[in-house]
């Protein structure tokens, strides 16, 4: 059984023999997307997310200037040439904002994806284990859950000075995988005692096949949920580290824009747009992913779907 238990295959689709694995996966994906889309909050999130992704891809087309061009009048307010004004170093704020989307989107997706990979690997094998090793993993995961993430990131980033984006992605993954692992482990444990897993074991399937081919497909929605959760955390962490100047301060990101804004006393020059816009973008992107998760929650827990009150 590879489809989600909450969504039995729709009877209107004829079970034609040509239905390949890829096609079926596509159908499952389409149906899941439909469930997420049917949630109003998730729909808003998906639209915002799509806008940011498009901006990140087409930043060179959309931006009026290069984000590094600094030959404009510094500290200027909004004008027709510079809609959002210029920075203290004389760069165009709008262009930096558009290019900044790239860093946040890439860090969010890459770090979120890598954390989810680690979380899936640890969570599934850990949930499947029933010996003392499980207790050891339990201790390690709990340790990573309670050790405050941001201070740990700051320390690691301080040792690996000015490593730029790869270092930020690395520290976000190191500190971000534990939550997903815990959630996925709980679900693995509950699925493990179901009849279809026992049947698969009796038919002689190997442990890795049971875990990755029988149990894993039933957790698609939880994996998607922990991906968006990890990506949100990654976007926020990147902006925080860049704001402290621990990333590469010459990469144009929303966090580094705020770093330079604070360092050039944008408050005193009244450049409120420069302070307001990058943070708003971080908040909007993170909100969008949280909103998508409202719909993803509904995939696995029909009680949380919209429209059916209590």
């Amino acid at each position: 059984m590879t489809s989600l238990p909450a969504n039995p295959p729709s009877p209107t689709v004829p079970a034609a023999p040509v239905r390949t694995g890829a096609l079926r996966a596509l159908q499952v994906f389409g149906r899941s997307f439909g469930t997420v889309w049917s949630n109003g909050k998730a729909r808003v999130g998906l639209v915002i997310l799509a806008v940011f992704v498009l901006v990140a891809i087409f930043a060179p087309v959309l931006a009026p200037y290069s984000p590094h061009a600094n030959d404009f009048t510094p500290d200027a307010g909004g004008s027709s040439a510079h809609l959002l004004g210029t920075t203290g170093a004389g760069e165009d704020v709008l262009s930096q904002l558009l290019y900044g989307a790239r860093v946040s989107i890439v860090v969010g997706f890459v770090a979120g994806g890598l954390s989810t990979l680690v979380a899936v690997a640890v969570g599934l094998s850990w949930g499947y284990l029933r010996n003392w090793l499980g207790e050891v993993v339990n201790f390690v995961v709990n340790l990573f859950l309670v050790v405050p993430g941001l201070p740990l990131m700051i320390i690691i980033a301080a040792y690996l000075q000015n490593g730029g984006l790869p270092v930020i992605v690395l520290v976000v993954v190191i500190t971000g995988w534990a939550w997903g692992a815990r959630v996925l482990r709980a679900q693995t444990q509950s699925l493990r005692s179901r009849d279809f897993v026992t049947a698969a074991l009796f038919s002689g399937e190997s442990a890795s096949r049971v875990v990755f081919r029988e149990i894993l497909p039933n957790m698609t929605s939880m994996i998607a949920g922990s991906f968006f959760g990890a990506a949100t955390a990654a976007v926020l962490a990147e902006s925080g580290l860049s704001f402290l100047g621990l990333g590469d301060p010459f990469t144009v990101s929303w966090g580094s824009m705020l770093y330079w804004a604070q360092n050039s006393n944008a408050l005193l020059t009244g450049q409120w747009v420069l302070l307001f816009a990058p943070g708003l973008c971080v908040a909007l992107l993170a909100t969008a992913m949280t909103l998508v998760n409202f719909g993803v929650d509904g995939l696995s827990n029909p009680r949380l779907r919209e429209g059916n009150g209590r």
Binding site: K41, T232, L236, S239, G240, F243, G255, L258, Q262, L267, W272, L275, F276, P278, G279, L280, V282, A283, L284, L285, A286, T287, T290, L291, F294
Partner: peptide, 26 residues
């Protein structure tokens, strides 16, 4: 509360701080 909660939880802490410094403080 749910929507504004989701929005607030997405605020970077330092950004909320910068906004309060600018508007309420400055």
């Amino acid at each position: 509360p749910t929507l504004s909660g989701a929005f607030l939880a997405a605020f970077p802490y330092f950004w909320t701080a910068l906004l309060l410094v600018f508007f309420v403080g400055y």
